[in-house]
Structure formats: structure tokens, C-alpha cells
Design a protein around this nucleic acid. Structure first.
Lengths: 120, 120
DNA sequence: TGAACATATGAACAATCGTTCATATGTAAT
DNA sequence: ATTACATATGAACGATTGTTCATATGTTCA
């Protein structure tokens, strides 16, 4: 009963076995959405620049703004997005809030992308 | 002469040494743009689903459409984007065009993302 | 408590993006 | 050549997103 027909589409030329096999093995919609959100967050030049900067040193918000030539507001907004995606962590010290990459795993995430980009 | 002042921003609270050190070590704008484009392409549920499907089997366009319940047009449009980003490759056989992931490197790119997502 | 300052956030506007619909291209048979 | 069909592409519309501007929050020091 778990094997329903393909009801969403009536195209021809289908390799039914392959299609059915693949359908059963697909990642859950939720996982896809999580992945989508992760890569979407990384898919912005500003945020990548921030990540790049933070991979070089822990920095407070206005350091990041100065290093990248951006407004404080824009940086803060984007750090919020990065924080929500668990890509950066922060630490308060007096009036400043210091940001850094969440863990080494994140560095790897960037490294794999860099490898692909440079592999041209 | 390579060490210009910070002219784009006049914020206070700057750790000048850190900022200057980081500025010098930042990736080039071009590299950032390439990375942005890569992750932006991956930052879409439809394209991730297609990648997911192709990681399970080589498939022709209408197989992908059937497996994911999408229109042929939408799939074709997205495959074009994936192709441009060198994430998938294709092979013509008669009227069909078979797509698959470009190489093992791409599989790794997805795997690292998956790891992060599941690491919650 | 009040001033100074680092950071965060809300609203809004411009730009970007993914889909659909219609149609074009290209391949294989008759 | 003409028909059938798999795939590709162009235009356009609606939705999403990143920035700016204005302002709020929260911390330190006098």
C-alpha cells in the first residue's frame, strides 16, 4: 500500500522502475528545506564575506563593518541570519559582541565550496 | 603603498590591527562571487531535490519531472542552472538527455551540508 | 540616573528569482 | 518530408530578499 502511482504528472517516456526506486529513496521534504535554508544563507556575497572575515579572526560587529566597508546595520542584520543558521556563534564582552564561526565543521563547509569554485 | 586607510566607513570601536590583518587576507571579490553563485544555486528546494534524485540514479528530464511531481519546463530550466554551475553533467541518447551529478566532489558538497543540517 | 555608545530591529523599497504558459529546437521514425 | 515527441527557451508575473533609514535595546561609566 505504500507504493502509490505517479499521480502528479502524466508525462511519457518514463523509466518506471528507476522513477519508483528514486522516489522511495528521496530525502524528506523537511531535510530538503533545511538544506535549502543552509545554502540560501551561504548564497549571498555579503554573508560569505562576513564568514570569510570571521574565519580569519573573531571580530565585533563594527570591526566586521569596517573590514568589509559595510554599514553597521547591514552587518548586524546579516549576522542575525548567520546566527539563526548556526553558522556563527557570539560572545558578549562589555558593550561589544564578538562573533566567530560556529565550529570547524563550518570551515569545512566553506572549504568544500572553495575547492569546487577553484576546480574550474 | 598597498596599505590604504579604511575609507569606506567611519565607525568607532575598531580594533585596527585585527581589521587591517583581516582585510589583507580576505578572498578576492571574484572568488566570493563564484562561491555566492555556487551556494545560491544550491539554495533552492527544487534544485536540491533534483540533485538528490540524480545522486540516486542517472535520469532523463521527464523521469526527474515524474519523480518529483514537477513540470517538464520547470525541471529543464533548473537543470540548465545546475549545468551552468557545473553541478550536473549530461549525455544525449536518442531523444532523451540523461543527467547525473558532475562528479564525486559534488556528492561531498551535499554530504557536508547534510551533516550540518542533521547535526542539530 | 543620565549620557555615550555598541548592537539589534522594524518598515519599506528595489532588485532578484522560480514558476507557468507558449513556443522553439532537435532527434527519430514512418 | 512530415509527424511525434523529448527537451530547451523566452516573456512575464508573483514572491522573496538585502539594503537603507530610523529607532529601540542594552551595557558601561561618570
Amino acid at each position: 500500500m505504500s507504493d502509490r502511482d505517479i499521480d502528479t504528472c502524466d508525462l511519457q517516456c518514463i523509466h518506471e522502475e528507476t522513477v519508483n526506486k528514486v522516489r522511495k529513496a528521496l530525502l524528506s521534504e523537511e531535510t530538503i528545506m533545511d538544506l535549502q535554508n543552509l545554502y540560501k544563507v551561504l548564497g549571498d556575497g555579503t554573508r560569505l564575506s562576513i564568514m570569510n572575515a570571521l574565519s580569519l579572526a573573531e571580530m565585533c560587529v563594527c570591526d566586521v563593518a569596517a573590514a568589509l566597508g559595510m554599514s553597521q546595520s547591514a552587518v548586524s542584520h546579516q549576522l542575525r541570519v548567520l546566527k539563526a543558521a548556526r553558522l556563527v556563534k557570539y560572545r558578549r564582552e562589555g558593550k561589544q559582541v564578538y562573533y566567530s564561526l560556529d565550529d570547524d565543521h563550518i570551515t569545512q563547509l566553506l572549504a568544500v565550496g572553495l575547492e569546487h569554485v577553484r576546480h574550474q
